[in-house]
């Protein structure tokens, strides 16, 4: 898994790629919660390059969302590949997260 934090059209974007499993989740959690603790909002997460996610990855995003909501911040997920989206749907989290088709939709929201 790779994580890059970039500025895109004035917004902070976390670009995640590769496989998010029990091995990768601690790094994801560290990066995500660091931005949450700095009250970086809105924080956009681009998942275009993610090929796999397990329950530890999902749990990490739920934790990030809860951290954001605690101070009224926004966590927006964008470009979720179909296979990854299927897990969000199954876990009924598609109704909880703000999810956008692509990064520009998330930026303009």
């Amino acid at each position: 898994m790779k994580i890059e934090v970039i500025d895109y059209k004035g917004k902070k974007v976390m670009e995640v790629s590769g496989e998010i499993d029990m091995h990768a989740s601690p790094s994801l959690r560290k990066e995500l919660m660091s931005l949450v603790s700095k009250k970086t909002t809105p924080l956009l997460v681009d998942l275009k390059g993610v090929s796999y996610i397990d329950s530890s990855g999902i749990a990490t995003f739920v934790e990030g969302l809860k951290g954001m909501m605690a101070f009224g911040g926004k966590l927006k997920l964008a470009s979720i590949p179909a296979g990854v989206m299927e897990i969000f749907n199954f876990s009924k989290l598609d109704k909880v997260f703000e999810i956008y088709g692509d990064l520009d939709d998330a930026v303009n929201s």
């Binding site: 329950s55 739920v62 199954f90 009924k92 909880v96």
Partner: peptide
């Protein structure tokens, strides 16, 4: 699955 909290999802993914 109606609760929003980290964890507790794995067993559902195994059972499905």
């Amino acid at each position: 699955l109606d609760e929003v909290k980290p964890g507790g999802l794995g067993i559902h993914l195994i059972k499905r």
